[in-house]
């Protein structure tokens, strides 16, 4: 091994940046969908009866107890079976949303549970319905507590999106892997790949730290 092939690293940079953009898009869409799904399921669990709560708890345990890679394969093989044929990108988004929603439910439920009990009781005493209490009183207060674990979760989603390379989604890891086996240049590609991930996740963590300081002040 004699020095790094810098010219090669510059040559592949456009391809890598394009792939990094796919990774970012995938992750942002995933986090939006999984938070939305998480809010729906968490509200349902907090408001609904025992059966709904039990089913949702089972879903949460499943997403937390089965490796992400296995869940991704399940979605990949199961979606066409139920007649949904999506392209790789949207299959990837669906799979990651499935994985992320379970964690989102727990984060939201945990934040609501950590609020003072009196908040809900006061809201009910003032004549609000359970649903109004949840959406008008509890959720607005929970947002602040949800932010730190949620940015953490976003970092996890970005890292999980690398697993989508196994179902041939053209994201960062897949493109890098293809480049390695096309040109048999290992170290240069791996360094560039690592740096890109550090830039993406590092900047996310940086933004979250600023956000945390803002909301605390």
């Amino acid at each position: 091994m004699d020095g790094l092939d810098l010219q090669f690293m510059i040559d592949i940079l456009p391809d890598m940046l394009l792939a990094a953009w796919v990774t970012v898009k995938l992750s942002v869409l995933t986090i939006i969908f999984s938070v939305a799904l998480g809010v729906v399921l968490a509200s349902w669990k907090l408001l609904g009866g025992k059966l709904a709560g039990g089913l949702i708890q089972a879903f949460v345990e499943f997403t937390r107890g089965v490796p992400q890679l296995v869940q991704i394969s399940i979605i990949y093989f199961a979606l066409p079976r139920v007649g949904l044929t999506l392209d790789e990108f949207w299959t990837g988004v669906t799979a990651l949303t499935f994985v992320g929603a379970g964690y989102a439910v727990e984060i939201i439920r945990g934040a609501v549970d950590s609020l003072d009990k009196g908040q809900r009781e006061n809201a009910l005493a003032l004549g609000l319905s359970e649903m109004q209490a949840l959406f008008l009183v509890l959720y607005p207060q929970a947002v602040r507590r949800v932010l730190p674990p949620l940015t953490n979760e976003l970092a996890n989603v970005i890292k999980a999106s690398a697993l989508l390379s196994v179902i041939s989604v053209n994201e960062l890891t897949k493109v890098a892997n293809d480049l390695i086996f096309e040109y048999f240049v290992v170290i240069e590609v791996l360094i560039e790949l690592t740096v890109l991930y550090i830039v993406i996740i590092g900047s996310l963590l940086w933004v979250s730290r600023i956000l945390e300081k803002r909301t605390r002040a």
């Binding site: 970005i158 791996l190 790949l193 690592t194 996740i201 590092g202």
Partner: peptide, 22 residues
């Protein structure tokens, strides 16, 4: 610690697989 926390595990596994023989 920063390197480990900011890169996906699949990348670390590929790196070990491809770099160790080198």
């Amino acid at each position: 610690v920063g390197l480990v926390r900011c890169t996906p595990i699949i990348v670390q596994i590929y790196a070990a697989y491809l770099l160790l023989p080198k």
